[in-house]
Design a protein around this nucleic acid. Structure first.
Lengths: 339, 339
DNA sequence: TTCGTTTGTGACATCGATGTCATAGTTCAT
DNA sequence: ATGAACTATGACATCGATGTCACAAACGAA
C-alpha cells in the first residue's frame, strides 16, 4: 500500500545518470550540464524526491538545525524565549527543534545527548541542574541561557539575579515594609539560589531582621506557590509584602492573595507575566524579558556556528528595569491585633 | 584539541571483539557470553561511548522519538498541550521533539518534513493550514490535534467547535444580551471558521440580528484582539457582551476592557487561561482543556506506533464544560444615550 | 597538431550502526 | 558415538547520501 520512499538511486535510474550526478543537482553544484540538470530536476519533481536528512547529515556531520532545551515549555518565560528564537531562526533559514528536560536531571542529559546525536549545528540551553561537564570535549557550539552550566565554562547570557533581587526587596522596603516574604523555587537551581541571596543581602544592607518563617522555598510551580502563600496568610505574623522570585510562582501568589482577600499585601514579581497589568492592584515587576535574552543568545550562537571558535566563553549580563504598577508601592497594612 | 568521537569500532578494538558483538552488548542481546559482555561493557564505560542515533536510525528506519508540531509555542493552550505530551512520553520512555510552524504554511511543511526525515516514530500535529496531502503515502503514524488536517483523512482528536461556540453564545443571550460581539482568529483556520459558524448559528436559532460590525476577524494574537476590542469600544453601538473564540485572544480582550474601564461588558472565552479566575469580574470560560486532548492523542499515537495499522482513522470529539465565573453572567449594561 | 585545461560524469569508499548469514565450538539425546 | 540443536562470534552487506578521485570529451593555446 505504502509507496516505498524515493531515493537518490531511484531518481538516478529514472534520469539515466549516476547517483552522484543527481546529488550534484540537488545540491546546486555548478558542474552539471544544463541538459542533464534539467532532466534530473524533472525526475526529482515527478517522483517527489526528498533528501533523507538523516543520511545526509550522517555523511556531512551536521545539519542546519539548532536545538533548544528548556526546563519546561509551560513556563511562559521559556515559551516566549522559544518564540523569539524561532522567529530569528526563521529569518536565518534555520530549523529549530525544542525539547524540555522536564526538570529532571536524567532527562536533561538524555535530551542533550539526543540533540547532539542528531547533529544539531548548535544548541541553546536553559539548564536545569545537570552537570554539563560531559560537553567539555564536544565541538558543537552551545550557548547557555538564564543560568550558568554546572561544571562547564561556556558562553552564557543571563541577568544579575543577585543584584536585581536585592533591588526589588529594597524597593519594597522603601515603602516601609519590614516583614517581606520570599517565594522561591528549589535552591539547587542557581537562579533561585542567587535570588534568595539577593533577598537576604537586602535585609542585611537595610538592617532588617531575617525571618526564616517568611521564606518559602521549593515552590516549583504556580500551584506550589499558591499553597505556600495560603500557608503564609494563615501563620501568625503575616508579612506585609512578598517578593516572588519567578513569574510563574507570581501567578500562584497572586491567585492566593485574591482568593484570600489579601490584595492589600504588597508584592513585586521577578519577571513580568500576562495579566499582571490588569489585575487590581496591578503587579509591580522586574521586567525579565525573555525575548531580549533569546535574541542575544541567538546572535552569539550564530556567530559561534559560523566561526567555530569556542575558546573564549563570553558572559553577557542583561540589566533589568522595574515596572512599578501599584502592588509594589502599597504601604504596609496596619496589623490587626488578633484577640 | 577536541577528542574524536568514539565509535563502535573503537570500542570493538579496545575490547578485542568485532563491532557486531559490541552492538549486541549495547542492545542487550542475550547471545553474548557474560565474560565478553563484561569486558565490552567495561570499555564502553571507560571510553564513554554513546550510540550515534542518526546512524542507528538510518539503519533501523525509526527511533523512539515522537515529534510534536504546533502553530505557536507561545500560545498557552499549545504550551500546556506539549507539557502533557511530554509527561506521558517521560512515563513511556519516549523522547519528544517539538517544533512550531510559526503560523507559516511553508514552514509548516518544512518542519513536518524535517521530522519525517529524522525518522520520528510518530507525530502529533496541531495543524495550521497546510494541505497535508503529501503525507498520504507515508507510513509514519500521525495524530492530528485540535483541527482536522486539510487534504488528509487521518486520526484526529478535537472538540466540537461549532456546537460549543453556539452553546457559549446562547449562554450569553440567556442573560439578555442581543448585541454580542465576536473576536476570532483568521477564518482560514478551520477552528476559527467553525467557531464563527457556531456564533452565527446561535444567532439564527435565537432570532437575533447578525451584525457584521460586531465581528472582529483576523485576531491572530492577544495584541490584535486587544486593538480590535478598543475599536469595538469606540464604535457606535457598543456590544453588551463578547464571545472570544480563543484563550489567547481573550487575554487581549480582557486587557482592553480593563484599560477602557468597560468591565461591565459581559464575556465568555473559548478556553481557560491563567488568571481568568482572579480578575474582576472573573472570566467565564469554556474549559477547553489541552491536557485532556493531549492525553487522548498520545494514547492513540502510542497504539498506532505499536500496531502500525493506519487504515481506519478515528475521530475523537471531547466535550467541554462551561465554567461560569461571573463575566459571562453579567446583565446587559443599560445603554447610555449619547447627547 | 599536440598537449595542458576545463568540464561533465561516474565508480567507489565512507559516515556509524545493525541485519543476515556463516561458522566453529558445545551440549544432548539416542 | 554421532548427528541435531544450540551458543557465541564475526564477515560482510546495507541504510541513503556525499567526498574523493579518476577519466573521457571538448577546448584552447602553442
Amino acid at each position: 500500500m505504502t509507496r516505498r520512499k524515493i531515493r537518490l538511486s531511484d531518481v538516478a535510474l529514472a534520469a539515466g545518470t549516476s547517483t552522484k550526478t543527481v546529488s550534484r543537482v540537488i545540491n546546486g553544484d555548478a558542474r552539471v550540464s544544463s541538459d542533464t540538470r534539467k532532466r534530473v530536476q524533472g525526475e526529482v519533481d515527478r517522483l517527489g524526491y526528498q533528501v533523507d536528512v538523516m543520511a545526509r547529515s550522517l555523511r556531512k556531520g551536521v545539519d542546519d538545525t539548532v536545538g533548544v532545551i528548556v526546563p519546561t515549555i509551560g513556563d511562559p518565560f521559556f515559551a516566549t524565549m522559544i518564540e523569539e528564537i524561532e522567529s530569528i531562526a526563521l529569518e536565518q533559514n534555520l530549523n529549530v527543534f525544542i525539547a524540555s528536560n522536564s526538570r529532571t536531571p536524567s532527562t536533561e542529559r538524555r535530551v542533550v545527548e539526543g540533540m547532539l546525536a542528531r547533529r544539531v549545528a548548535g544548541m541553546i540551553i536553559a539548564p536545569f541542574m545537570t552537570d554539563f561537564g560531559f560537553l567539555a570535549n564536544i565541538n558543537t557550539p552551545v550557548v547557555f541561557l538564564d543560568r550558568h552550566a554546572n561544571g562547564l565554562d561556556s558562553d552564557v547570557v543571563l541577568v544579575d539575579d543577585f543584584a536585581e533581587s536585592q533591588k526589588a526587596v529594597i524597593h519594597l522596603a522603601s515603602y516601609g515594609h519590614t516583614r517581606i516574604a520570599l517565594i522561591v523555587d528549589d535552591l539547587e537551581i542557581e537562579t533561585s539560589r542567587k535570588r534568595r541571596e539577593g533577598y537576604l543581602a537586602a535585609h542585611v544592607e537595610l538592617g532588617l531582621p531575617i525571618d526564616e518563617s517568611l521564606q518559602f522555598l521549593g515552590c516549583t510551580n504556580a500551584e506550589a506557590a499558591e499553597s505556600s502563600t495560603y500557608k503564609m496568610l494563615a501563620q501568625p505574623g503575616v508579612p506585609t509584602a512578598i517578593f516572588s522570585a519567578r513569574s510563574e510562582t507570581s501567578l500562584g501568589v497572586v491567585r492566593a492573595l485574591h482568593m484570600g482577600n489579601r490584595t492589600d499585601i504588597a508584592m513585586v514579581s521577578f519577571g513580568d507575566f500576562v495579566a499582571a497589568d490588569i489585575l487590581s492592584p496591578a503587579i509591580t515587576v522586574l521586567d525579565h524579558n525573555p525575548r531580549i535574552l533569546a535574541r542575544i543568545a541567538m546572535e552569539r550562537l550564530i556567530a559561534l556556528m559560523a566561526s567555530g571558535e569556542t575558546d573564549f566563553p563570553s558572559e553577557t549580563i542583561v540589566p533589568l528595569h522595574m515596572i512599578a504598577r501599584g502592588s509594589g508601592e502599597l504601604p504596609p497594612t496596619v496589623l490587626e491585633v488578633s484577640a
